[in-house]
Structure formats: structure tokens, C-alpha cells
């Protein structure tokens, strides 16, 4: 059992800062919109870790522990963004990807991306990252909350104050748009 006496000391903790800031920052940058926000979240995570150092169980690795704190900070960030979308700009109009009969609208019918190599995977990763940046803030928030996987969907809905139906419908709309955006980029890329 870890006791107060075994809590991590300051020099050891500084070692963690040097060892893990890079990986934590890269992770944060892939999951929030602004680089400055990513840096702030990493800093907040380290401060929370320092405050909670007595709770750090020696059996888990510092890296795993720091990542779980960072994920909570990222979730806090998106929860705030979700509740206050106005701050993050005006919601762009929802493009309709379907026609009046509920079929795919011309120009938006899903077509194969024609993936055939490891380079294509990287290409899609890059397009995905770009397209995520273009999502309205609170759609992105809904998507990010889902993929942080720190909590189950019911818990997320409760925190965001939405019904389960609204929550998955938002994620659905966001992903329809993401998919369309990736396809558009892919077409441009191939020509």
C-alpha cells in the first residue's frame, strides 16, 4: 500500500515533466482545436497530478496516470465548449447530404476511397484531422467526448445535459459531414 511517505518527490516529478510533456502535448494537440489550448491542458494536467500525487498508486505507471488526468482535462474542455458554443463562433448552416426522398443527394453519394497502401492511411489521418478542425465546436465536442472513452455514453449525456438520442444524432451529423469532407479532399488529392 502506498502511503504519504512514498508520494512522489519534487525532483522525481520534474523528471516526469521532462519525460512525458512531449507525448502528452502531441495527444492533446490531436484532440483540441488550438495549440495554445493543448499546452494549457497539459499544464493543468501536471498541476492536478502534483496536487494529487498522494493518490498516485505506485503500481501504475506515471505515463498511464498522467494520460488519464489529461483525458479528464480534455473532457472538461469539450464539456465547456459544448455548453457554450456561441463563444466558439457561429454555427455554419447544416448542409443537407440527402435529397427530399431521403436518398443521398447528388455529389454526396458515398464512393470508395480506393485505399491501397499505408500512405493512404496516413493521408486519411491528415484529412480527418483537417476536417475535424472544420466541425462546429459543439459537434466536435460530442465526437471528442465519445472517443475519449473515459466514460460511457449515458454518463456523457448526463454531463452534457442531452438525451441519448440527441447525443448520437449529433455525432451522426458530425460524422456524415466528416466523411463527406474526407471524400472531397480525397477526390482533390487524386486529381
Amino acid at each position: 500500500m502506498p502511503t504519504v511517505d512514498q508520494a512522489v518527490g519534487r525532483s522525481e516529478f520534474d523528471g516526469w515533466v521532462h519525460a512525458h510533456t512531449g507525448d502528452l502535448l502531441r495527444y492533446a494537440r490531436s484532440r483540441v482545436r488550438d495549440e495554445a489550448v493543448a499546452e494549457d491542458l497539459v499544464q493543468l494536467a501536471f498541476i492536478a497530478a502534483w496536487e494529487g500525487r498522494k493518490k498516485f498508486a505506485q503500481q501504475s505507471s506515471p505515463r498511464t496516470w498522467l494520460f488519464s488526468i489529461l483525458k479528464n482535462k480534455i473532457a472538461d474542455h469539450w464539456r465547456k465548449a459544448y455548453r457554450d458554443p456561441v463563444v466558439h463562433g457561429v454555427e455554419p448552416m447544416d448542409l443537407d447530404f440527402f435529397d427530399g426522398d431521403g436518398g443521398w443527394a447528388p455529389g454526396h453519394i458515398p464512393q470508395e476511397w480506393g485505399l491501397d497502401g499505408p500512405d493512404d492511411d496516413e493521408q486519411i489521418q491528415r484529412f480527418l484531422a483537417d476536417c475535424l478542425q472544420q466541425l462546429p465546436a459543439h459537434w466536435r465536442a460530442a465526437v471528442e467526448m465519445k472517443f475519449l472513452k473515459e466514460k460511457d455514453a449515458d454518463a456523457i449525456c448526463q454531463e452534457l445535459g442531452v438525451s441519448a438520442t440527441n447525443y448520437w444524432q449529433q455525432i451522426h451529423r458530425a460524422k456524415v459531414r466528416l466523411r463527406d469532407c474526407i471524400s472531397t479532399n480525397m477526390k482533390k488529392h487524386r486529381h
Partner: peptide, 21 residues
């Protein structure tokens, strides 16, 4: 999703974090 594979320079940020603590 993993961010850019390239390492990001973090010396400044590390200093900032340590100062904040």
C-alpha cells in the same frame, strides 16, 4: 488518432509547467 509523428519542441512548455508548480 495520434498527433503528428514528429516530436514537438517542448523545452519552453516544460519550463512553464515547472514554474507553475
Amino acid at each position: 488518432r495520434v498527433a503528428e509523428p514528429l516530436p514537438i519542441p517542448t523545452t519552453q512548455l516544460e519550463k512553464r509547467i515547472i514554474a507553475a508548480i
